[in-house]
Amino acid sequence: MTTPSVPSSPGSAVKALRPLFAWALLGYVALQLFFTFFGWLLPSRDTTFSSRSASAGFVTLYTIVLPLLALLIATQITPVLAVSKLMAAIALVEYLVVLFFGLISFLLGLGRTFDYVNSARSAFGALEHFVMGLAELGVAALVAYAVLRIFLSLGGTLPDFSARHTPPAQHTPPTQSSEQPTQIL
């Protein structure tokens, strides 16, 4: 009977699990965003779109921290994982989803939040929703910028959507002349 090999140190015991942890964190956020999107989009009996927007939950501690943690696990512990560039691209897409839908749901939810202000307590609650929503979006944008820098440092490139961008001219081989040299007999 063979026994499983015991890692020589706690660090080596965890290093082997790095890809699993990084993919699990990215996958968790992807699932969270998937279910949050459809929970926000699909109507329910006692809610309106603006009330679902006010409590959508696109920008949460999980959606802000976990993709960054996955990248730190993949890139800051040596050796850098071979798939870290792909992980950075996935994390960047997740942050774009968080920021885009987070901003839209925040703006739509403001109408609902401020529509029910009728006391000092509800005014303070609306102010809290506004300030904390902006703070969450700001932190998410800062982390997204850090992930963008990680992605670019790993050799990733962004598409150029500018109107001034023209594709490079293609080099065509020189054409052969149709005239054949005459042979002298």
Rank of each mutant, 00 (worst) to 15 (best):
T3E: 10
S5G: 04
V6S: 07
A13E: 01
K15M: 08
A16C: 06
L17Y: 01
L17P: 02
F21L: 08
F21E: 07
A24T: 01
L26M: 06
L26V: 05
Y28K: 07
V29M: 11
L33V: 03
T36K: 11
F37H: 11
F38V: 13
G39C: 12
W40G: 08
L42F: 02
R45F: 11
D46M: 11
D46I: 03
T48Y: 06
S50Q: 10
R52F: 08
S53T: 09
S53Y: 06
S55M: 07
G57Q: 12
G57T: 05
V59I: 02
T60C: 08
I64Y: 08
I64F: 03
V65D: 13
L66M: 15
L69N: 01
A74I: 04
T75K: 09
T75N: 05
P79M: 06
V80H: 00
A82Y: 00
S84I: 00
L86D: 10
M87L: 09
A88W: 05
V93S: 14
Y95H: 15
V97I: 14
V98I: 13
L103H: 09
I104H: 14
L107A: 06
G109N: 08
G111T: 14
F114R: 14
D115E: 15
V117S: 03
N118V: 01
R121E: 15
R121I: 14
S122R: 14
A123N: 01
A123I: 07
F124R: 15
G125C: 01
G125Y: 04
M132Y: 13
M132I: 05
A135T: 07
L137M: 14
G138R: 11
A140T: 00
V143D: 13
A146S: 11
V147F: 07
V147K: 15
V147T: 06
R149A: 06
R149F: 04
I150P: 02
L152I: 09
S153A: 01
G155E: 14
T157Y: 02
P159A: 14
P159N: 12
F161H: 13
P167C: 05
P167F: 00
P168C: 04
P168W: 04
A169K: 03
H171Y: 06
T175V: 13
S177T: 12
Q180P: 02
I184Q: 15
I184V: 09
